[in-house]
Amino acid sequence: MTSPNHRDLIPSAGLILLGGYALYEASSMSAFGAIFPRLAGGGMTLGGMALAVRALVFNAASPVPAETLGRPALMLATLAAWAVALPIIGFIPASLIGAAAAMVIAMNDRPSAKELIYHAVGLTALILAIAGVFGGLLNVPLP
């Protein structure tokens, strides 16, 4: 028997909950409409249980990733805010702000003023080019 703090216990608990919810919802569907939701829900529940049993009995832990969480979490928050802001303030303003934030997050060393200007000009040009290609050439109505 291994430690109950095994890493795979977290996804297994999530899978059992998710699968249970899928099965519960499937009970109110029509006979044909419920076949695949039941299959998916049942598979997730059983898979979650198997993962838990394997974690507790056989200790087949997945390796802990080496990367730090701070910057990826910040980048994820930036992408989420960017996605939400897109229809509200429009593609160009949202992308300029989002790209600037992403640039700062991705910088490992303090940039020189010249580098910063080059990056800012390059990204502004890229965003305007994307807007031009999609909005002008391909007739995609941009927000």
Partner: peptide, 11 residues
Amino acid sequence: KSALAPAIGAL
């Protein structure tokens, strides 16, 4: 990366 990440983000 500091230029690639925002470019990928926009795309």
